[in-house]
């Protein structure tokens, strides 16, 4: 037996984690709104000036945060998402034709990621049947109900964010920051996980792992998390 009995995925920082990411690639980004987004990786991609990115992400960030940072700098060529409100620069680029946008149902987005990671090339879903989403797609009836054929994504890189991770790449998410991160981790040929807390192997309870390290190729300790809140809603103490 060698000195370690695990496969280390650790890289020193975000800059090292994006090694091999080139212009005109398709890239997945975990997160829902600004919740659970890979802040450090997005900043590193901006700083390196990678362009022509096709983004697969549920949302497109806000003007000055999240993927909005890469829109500001025109680094995104195409956005594949389910909901893209709350972003003026996105709207401007979309209406002017600078940005290509493909909108797909949220559950289909999630399943196309999962399928990619699970070795399922395509699947049938009822979502979008009879709408413009179904245009040009194969329709098949199962149990009397029409379904459309959707294909797995193909993404060379996926960037995800977890709460805790260990050096072997095992991940634990917190609250609703889990969202798209697990299935994007599965889908990426190179999955980069940034974590709030990177620990030694053995420190995480194997019963509590949400994503096993086999799906993670690189992991690093994130820094300076802003974790911005998009819609701050509260109730009075008297309620």
């Amino acid at each position: 037996m060698s000195a370690t009995n695990y496969i280390s995925k650790v890289v020193p920082n975000a800059a090292a984690a994006i090694e091999g990411l080139e212009n005109d690639m398709t890239v997945m980004f975990g997160g829902f709104g600004l919740c659970g987004i890979p802040e450090n990786s997005i900043a590193a991609i901006r700083d390196k000036g990678i362009t022509g990115i096709t983004c697969i992400s549920n949302n497109a960030g806000v003007d000055d945060f999240g993927l909005g940072l890469l829109l500001q700098t025109r680094q995104i060529k195409k956005m594949i998402a389910s909901y893209v409100g709350e972003n003026d620069e996105f709207e401007r680029q979309m209406l002017s034709g600078e940005l290509d946008v493909e909108l797909i149902p949220q559950g289909t987005l999630a399943e196309r990621c999962r399928a990619a990671g699970a070795g399922v090339p395509a699947f049938y879903t009822p979502a979008g049947y009879g709408t413009e989403v179904a245009e040009g797609k194969e329709v098949r009836v199962f149990n009397g109900k029409p379904h459309i054929l959707e294909h797995a994504f193909d993404a060379p890189f996926a960037f995800v964010k977890a709460w805790k991770g260990d050096k072997a790449g095992n991940l634990i998410f917190k609250g609703t920051a889990r969202n798209f991160n697990p299935m994007m981790a599965m889908a990426g040929k190179i999955t980069v996980a940034e974590v709030e807390e990177l620990v030694e192997v053995g420190e995480l309870d194997p019963n509590s792992i949400h994503i096993p390290g086999i799906f993670v190729q690189r992991i690093f300790q994130g820094v300076d998390y802003e974790k911005r809140i998009e819609q701050r809603t509260v109730r009075a103490k008297s309620e």
């Binding site: 998402a81 389910s82 909901y83 893209v84 409100g85 709207e91 979309m94 209406l95 909108l103 149902p105 949220q106 559950g107 289909t108 879903t125 009822p126 979502a127 979008g128 049947y129 709408t131 989403v133």
Partner: peptide, 15 residues
């Protein structure tokens, strides 16, 4: 007009 997207609505109503 500006299109924001369907989010999860299509999955919800289809199922």
């Amino acid at each position: 007009r500006m299109v924001k997207g369907m989010g999860g609505a299509m999955d919800l109503v289809a199922s």
